[in-house]
Write a protein that binds this DNA or RNA. Structure first.
Lengths: 149, 149
DNA sequence: CTCAAATTATTGTATATACAAATATTATAA
DNA sequence: TTATAATATTTGTATATACAATAATTTGAG
């Protein structure tokens, strides 16, 4: 269904407006799809995003600002997301011994196992996006990168 | 900057994963850009979205489910967004006289004026997206429509 | 007609977003 | 060295998201 049908707009004034609306709508669409896959594992998409970043540095620790700069949504409040992950036993947080204003955030073994579990289900999720070919998916990525300038 | 540099990922496993991440990231990027344009007018992007839908039906009223189905984000809680718009004097809400379980939501004159004001600033906003040509913007829209199936 | 099902809107709750202010620590410049 | 600026994290607050539960009304099958 095209974006006009999807949200019942007769016609957009120009191509850029259509694209902007389409990007916000489709961003939410994708977010919802991925979110529904991750929810059953007991964490949110945003918490999963943080865990993935921690795994990328593992076994080195990561600090808050680094996590924030690598998230899909940089407005996320990393302090509170990490709080949750620590409560759940998926991450640890301690003061960096050399720079006492920095925090060392680390993924735990339990966190790594959880990610492994979630990874197993991922192919099923990605399969839902195969109405586009790999080439078309690449085209989308290239155009989005160019759009953000 | 491409998505790998943007969120510091060395390489994605495949084209579809890169696209999915890129869509979530870029959806947030666009949301933030548009949001910052609308904020100074005293309403949120989501409230603006509702007002636009109400204007589309004006002078006919619109009911909650119709608003919800046409929003960029369908998980929005329309009751509370409309509450806010009514408080601000941009919309009215009354029981539909023929179907007492439906509500008639209408944009006010004040709401229409606000939208007109905001529209005046829009070309400046859209200009920020012209790193893509109109053809490229159309290609993005077509591929997103196809992706959603 | 009557009762169950469907529709429409509201409310409740936990989490996330957006943004500003506060706090603590480290770096730097006079 | 001391004051100032920069960095890193936390906290506060208002709004929005996500989802489930409730309530009221209308529809429709029997």
């Amino acid at each position: 269904m095209n974006i006009e049908e999807e949200i019942q707009i007769k016609d957009f004034k120009d191509s850029h407006r259509r694209m902007i609306v389409n990007l916000m709508f489709t961003g939410n669409y994708v977010h919802n799809m991925v979110s529904k896959y991750i929810k059953p594992f007991g964490i949110s998409l945003e918490q999963h995003n943080v865990l993935g970043i921690l795994r990328g540095q593992y076994p080195s620790p990561t600090m808050f600002t680094t996590i924030q700069s690598r998230m899909y949504n940089r407005n996320s409040n990393v302090t509170r997301l990490v709080d949750k992950l620590v409560d759940l036993g998926y991450a640890t947080r301690e003061l960096n011994p050399n720079h006492r204003r920095k925090m060392d955030i680390c993924i735990t073994e339990k966190g790594l196992s959880l990610l492994t579990e979630i990874d197993k289900a991922m192919p099923d999720l990605y399969a839902e996006f195969h109405s586009l070919s790999a080439q078309e998916a690449d085209t989308v990525s290239q155009l989005l990168d160019k759009m953000r300038g």
